[in-house]
Amino acid sequence: MAQPTVVLSDLSRRFRDVEAVDRLTFSVGRGELFGIVGPDGAGKTTTLRMLAGVLRPTGGDARVGGVSVTRDPEGVKRHIAYMSQRFGLYTDLTVRENIDFYADLFRVPADQRARRLERLYQFSGLGPFERRLAGQLSGGMKQKLGLCCALVHEPEIMLLDEPTFGVDPISRRDLWLIVHEMVAAGITVLVATAYLDEAERCDRVAMLHAGQLLALDTPEGFRRRLTGRIQTVRTSAPRQTRDLVAAHPAVQHAVLFGDMLHAILDDPARDWPDVKSRIASAGITILEEAAGEPSLEDVFIHLVTSAPAHA
């Protein structure tokens, strides 16, 4: 790993009697694209807020760009750009007014503004909408505007909280292109997401569950953690199939993704025919089946269900 630029040490946040973030410890290297994944309530937003210096930790500390978030939360803010999950720009200001406002707040020198604005419009495609009120933009364009306002001061570190939440697939791809461009330009990016397919794009991924760090690895490393192989199957009775398959001794896990059942087997070539025959003898029709590569989703569910601390 490159020189660490975001370092969490036992970072914790308690709300009343709930430990929203529980002793998180990990480091993010300079120029890394780092994913924080987990279901809603796992502590992703709380973690990013603390790193952004807008929420005070109740325990531990983190250094962001070399600055402690507990001792100097304001000092952190010169190094970062933070994009909250909820659209945080002014809907009653135009695209241009929002960008200018944030340029002023970060005191972007006047002689650099035109060049930066041009670049921001170039990658976001927001130029033609300069005079439109932010509230009248589509969900995807709002997020692009959020990125523009975040990038106007050329931050070292970006903290993005579910930037693609509620965004259409085309805009989602556009947003990720922008993120990859930022990383290519040397910016460190921490991105929280509930979509595990997005986490596959990251250099490394921290999996959070109930405020705790479940695991931290590269996407490839995560997939290697699964000892078994994935067999997917779609049938006429998905739930009944799941119960049947999960009960089979050769199956480690069986999880439904929609109506597609993902089963993890130690050796599908040996055991799958027997599992299949049980499905068939229950009078269930198999519509589709395949041997698959495990996704991060499979790994995540495997980790959550087998985590000893999870209670």
């Binding site: 210096g53 803010k77 750009a81 933070y82 994009m83 909250s84 945080g88 720009l89 944030y102 707040l105």
Partner: peptide, 14 residues
């Protein structure tokens, strides 16, 4: 209420 303060709070504005 509108969520703009969270964004504003993450800038160096005093």
């Amino acid at each position: 209420e509108r969520g703009t303060m969270e964004q504003l709070a993450a800038t160096p504005v005093h």
